[in-house]
Design a protein around this nucleic acid. Sequence first.
DNA 1: TTGTGTTTTATTGCCTCC
DNA 2: GGAGGCAATAAAACACAA
Length: 220
Amino acid sequence: MIITMNRNQIDDEMTLFSQLHPGDYGQIPPPPRGLKPRRRRRRGRGGVGEADGVPGGLVGMKKRKLSDQQVMMLEQNFGSEHKLESERKDRLASELGLDPRQVAVWFQNRRARWKNKKLEEEYSKLKSLHDSAIIEKCHLQAEVLKLKEQLGEADKQIHKLSSALEEGHRKCREGHDGVNGSNSPSMTSISTEPLSLPPGFLGDLAYELDDILEWLSHYM
DNA sequence: TTGTGTTTTATTGCCTCC
DNA sequence: GGAGGCAATAAAACACAA
């Protein structure tokens, strides 16, 4: 898997990584103060073939792949400890018939690979967390929508109810103002009958409304 | 065989720590 | 100031499709 990132992304990842793995060997150094643009280095295969001044004594050495045996041994050592003290480096080098510098370089590159792998793992972990958070968010949004619809419906019913109450009230007043007699509408005509609330729709509120209606029929 | 992409080995330049 | 670490990068080695 190839991840292409620009410098800023990499820096962000590094920061994240160092936060997630504070104890890991690779303490990411703080951003260099007054970061100078890196000087483009000159190359020239002269490095390897130079007669002198080449660190590690790789003079005249052609770049050569390490044998499976050597790699296995190095991997074993890396597995037990990612850091390489100079004593171990020299011992390993002589055991494997390599230059100590080669051993150091191998560890260097191996640490870099290990770090990249860790980063990729961390990335996939965070990505799956992010994905499930997105899904959860969708569910919650759908739920909010549903609840809003229910709320609108409840508002309508409440409106209906209060209109019915008002109507009852009005009729009641008319009854009182007119002749006390047979044609006065009784409070029992105020009924919640036309209100077809879904069962359990208003919950406890429905009981309260019944109480209110009863109370009104008593005192009006 | 050859072009192309990936991996591995090695170098360079900079930084930190002792 | 030197040793050692790291990022960036070059270049050899390797894998593999066309």
